[in-house]
Every structure is written in C-alpha cells, then in structure tokens.
Amino acid sequence: MKKNIEELINKYLDNELDPAGVNELNNLLTDDEDSLKELKAYKTVEHALREMELDDAPAGTTPRVMHRIATAKKAKSSNWFFKAVISFFITGIAASLFIAIKNYHPSDKEIIPQQTVDSVSNFIGEKTHIFSSIFSGDDVKLIGTVVTLLLIVTGYFIFETHRNFRNKLKSL
C-alpha cells in the first residue's frame, strides 16, 4: 500500500501520471489519512528542493581559469617549438651524413679484392675504412659545423626551457 502511494506520488510529481492514475491517487487520498500525510511530506520536500540555491563559485574563478588556459596554450606552443628544433637537428645530421656518403669515392688502391677464406675479416676492414674515410675527408668540416651549430641552438633552447620552468615554479 505504502509503496503504491509512493510510486503514484512520485509519478504525479514528475507529471507522468495518466488520468486513471490520478483517479487512483485521489481515491487513496480521500480514504486514507496516512496517504494524505505522505503527499504533504512529498510536497514539503518538493517545495524545499525547488528553493535550493546554487553555491557561488570561489571568488576569482574566471581569471584563474583563463590564466590556466593561457599558460597551457603557451606550454603547448613551446612544445611545438621544441619538436621543431629536434626535427631540424635530426634532419641536419641525416642530410650531412647523406652528403658525406654521396661525396665519397674510393680510390683504386682502396679496393681490396678478396675472395678467399678471410673474406669476412676483409669485409669488416672495408666498412671500417669507409667510415674512417668519411670522417677524415673535407666533408668532416661540413658535418662538424652543422652539428656544432645545432648543438648550440638545442643547448640554448634547453637552457631557456629550464629557466622558464624555474620561473614558473617560483611564481606558484
């Protein structure tokens, strides 16, 4: 009985009670004092909840949120800058190596034809020779310059990032 009246009143409060349900509720309320008490209590709750007010957000919420958005945006853009510097660095090294290898022309005396049992050790010797030729030729100047330049730029960027991070920590 109690469950039925609760269900009917909840539906009534949600505006979901059909005409037959309204009649049933009316009959229950007329015949039973406890049911009427239930409705009055529900109405009291409903009335109170409708008068509930919002809590105010803490003062300064909007500027704080906007500051965080601006900071996050800045951090994101410096992230892109960092990625760009790294990409530039890697591309530079790859390009330097490519140019150096392309410019390498082994002389006749450098070719060691070996088709005997020790071909494995000669193969290793040949590869070592290629590398030593790359880094002992004029191309090493090009590679050295590019790498040094890129290291200076990267070093400067890392230093700046670290300094900004420290300043940010101090400002907290």
């Binding site: 409060l13 008490k37 209590a41 529900y42 109405k43 009291t44 909840l49």
Partner: peptide, 22 residues
Amino acid sequence: MLHRSRTALKDLVIKHNLQEEL
C-alpha cells in the same frame, strides 16, 4: 535514484512531523 532520494527525504519530513498543509 531521483525517486529514492525524494522518498528518503520525505521519510525524514514525516519522522520530524515537518509536513506542510496543502
């Protein structure tokens, strides 16, 4: 969940006899 909350609050109103006249 809405009905359960409402009903729980209603039970408290009845417990303390706080219901208003219609």
